[in-house]
């Protein structure tokens, strides 16, 4: 998730970056934006809207995991000398569809069927995105949000845990 900071040709202070991330974690900050002359450090961390994930539907009331631990999710670095900064990435960058149950992840209803969704698929709240099987009970999992799938985070047939991120999604 984290972008590697550029190293070649950039006098970049990794210790300072580490210090900033630790400061953000300690204080529960999700975003900082520092400017000094032509240099700008903009750090964002954590899936910032995970509380929207899987709030209703067939698994409402199931043991829901605690929110995702806040981890550094994106570090954006402005090129030195740039005077016009790109707009910050949308805040839904880190939104994921999480598994509401423990079981086995399947991308399609049957091995010969096409996957329910793939990268680029537009989904609505009621779109089935995958099946999770637990002890031969096959649960269709709805997206529970509107947006576009940007990444499939689990391999077909792999086991998943409660709350494990399954898909990355851009809301909208």
């Amino acid at each position: 998730m984290s972008k590697e900071p550029p190293t070649a040709g950039t006098p970049f202070n990794l210790d300072k970056l580490k210090e900033l991330i630790e400061m953000m974690e300690k204080n529960g900050l999700t975003e900082i934006d520092l400017r000094s002359g032509a240099e700008r450090w903009q750090l964002r961390r954590g899936p910032q809207e995970v509380t929207q994930v899987v709030s209703a539907g067939p698994f409402a009331g199931m043991h829901m995991p605690p929110p995702m631990p806040m981890t550094p999710a994106a570090v954006q670095l402005a090129p030195a000398g740039s005077s016009v900064m790109p707009a910050a990435a949308p805040a839904d960058d880190g939104v994921v569809i999480k598994s509401p149950t423990v079981g086995t992840f399947y991308v399609a209803a049957a091995p010969t069927d096409p996957p329910f969704v793939s990268v680029g698929s537009k989904v609505k709240e009621d779109t089935v995105v995958c099946i999770i099987e637990a002890m031969k009970v096959f649960n269709q999992i709805p997206a529970e949000m509107n947006g576009t799938i940007t990444a499939v985070l689990v391999k077909n047939g792999d086991p998943v845990e409660f709350g494990q991120p399954l898909f990355k999604i851009n809301l909208g």
Partner: peptide
């Protein structure tokens, strides 16, 4: 045979497939 196959005299006699649709209120 965990979790869902029933065997009679060592051979399978029944198959079970349980599905949960993605219903929302």
């Amino acid at each position: 045979k965990w979790p869902n196959d029933v065997f009679l005299a060592g051979r399978k006699v029944c198959g079970i497939l349980t599905e949960v649709p993605a219903n929302r209120p």
